[in-house]
């Protein structure tokens, strides 16, 4: 299985994603530089990592969506390739319209870095297959513009299609305002596209996937992707 980690100018979780894929899961992993001609068809998984692509200037992801590599990522996604966008990667995916909605400033107006519980909402996808139904994962968030927004029509479509994969919740899975760290609509922390092959989330699964820590909840997401690809189940 071949993994690619995209490097935009300003990406800063690229090394972390690379480390987890290559050194923890022992997968063949390559860097994908943002400019120049490239063919992504050799990859099974393309990861858009966290960070501040193009300094987050204008809006996070606004400039990155027009980089050369994103044209290829769109083509790759359209042909069914697995795309995982984490944090800034999620922001790029919504700006590029590969995922619906938008990510705006946290309602706290502050950057938030801490481990928060999220509830898994749909375990029948290729990004969550290893998670137990309605299980609660503890995953770090680290963002300033992570408040998910979508209009009511868009929201009801997401819900209808079961595209919401993760919601911020309390330690026992309570999805309430009290446990919404950034003001996201419906406590949404991560979503998938209709086709089931593009997933974006604000929490950082790569930050709880290395055995150096006791919390390994993030591994479930990577294992889900790997198992679905290795068992040949199409998305």
């Amino acid at each position: 299985m071949n993994c690619g980690v995209v490097v935009f100018p300003g990406s800063n979780c690229d090394h972390d994603c690379f480390h987890i894929l290559k050194h923890v899961f022992k997968l063949h992993t390559e860097w994908i530089w943002h400019k120049g001609d490239m063919d992504l068809s050799r990859f099974d998984l393309v990861v858009l990592p966290g960070g501040y692509s193009y300094g987050d200037y204008l809006r996070p992801g606004a400039i990155a969506q027009f980089s050369t590599v994103m044209k290829e990522v769109v083509r790759f996604a359209e042909s069914g390739g697995r795309v995982l966008g984490i944090c800034n990667g999620f922001q790029v995916l919504v700006e590029a319209k590969l995922l619906p909605g938008a990510l705006i400033q946290n309602n706290t107006q502050k950057f938030i870095c801490k481990t928060v519980p999220v509830r898994v909402e749909n375990t029948s996808t290729s990004f969550t297959g290893e998670c137990a139904d309605e299980s609660v994962l503890n995953i770090p968030i680290a963002h300033h513009q992570g408040s998910y927004f979508i209009d009511p029509d868009g929201l009801s479509q997401l819900e209808e299609n079961r595209q919401v994969l993760f919601r911020y919740c309390g330690p026992a899975g309570e999805v309430t305002d009290e446990f919404n760290p950034n003001g996201s609509v419906g406590n949404i922390a991560g979503i998938i596209n209709k086709g089931g092959n593009v997933m974006g989330l604000m929490p950082h699964p790569e930050r709880c996937a290395d055995p150096a820590w006791s919390n390994l909840d993030g591994q479930l997401i990577f294992k889900s992707i790997i198992n679905s690809l290795q068992s040949g189940v199409s998305a």
Binding site: N12, C13, H15, D16, H19, I20, G50, K110, F111, I112, C113, K114, P140, A142, H204, E206, R207, D210, A212, W213
Partner: peptide
Amino acid sequence: KHWVYEQYDHMVRLNTL
């Protein structure tokens, strides 16, 4: 001091124990 350090990304680079 969590009000302060939660505004800092203290985990990136995967070294912070």
